[in-house]
């Protein structure tokens, strides 16, 4: 389940629970919409327990799209495990980690 909040040119997307392939599609859709609006995008992972590859793919895709606009994907609320995963993949060096 994906919660999305948009206010003042910033959209916060908060995937919850286990973000599998289906949820990843919703996540990608939510972020895509936000970028289409020209918003800054932040992903709040505080309620997320596990990320699938597709979800990570979606985040990378979103990040790359944002980078083309001179911005970065903001990621915050990461739990210990997910943070470890992002570090192993060296994505923490690219995303804007809060």
């Amino acid at each position: 389940m994906i919660r999305s909040q948009s206010a003042g040119g910033k959209t916060s997307v908060a995937p919850e629970g286990n973000v599998g392939t289906q949820e990843a599609e919703q996540l990608a859709k939510a972020m895509e919409d936000a970028i289409a609006q020209g918003d800054e995008v932040a992903v709040d992972l505080s309620a997320c327990q596990a990320l699938s590859s597709s979800a990570i793919g979606a985040m990378i895709a979103c990040h790359n799209a944002l980078r083309a606009k001179g911005s970065r994907l903001r990621v915050h609320g990461t739990g210990e495990e997910i943070l470890r995963l992002l570090r192993i993949m060296q994505l923490d060096r690219h995303f804007d980690m809060a």
């Binding site: 970028i35 990378i60 895709a61 790359n64 799209a65 060296q90 994505l91 690219h94």
Partner: peptide
Amino acid sequence: SRVAHDADGNLLG
């Protein structure tokens, strides 16, 4: 280890 995040450019969608 790392994800080649920029390997294939923008893959949005």
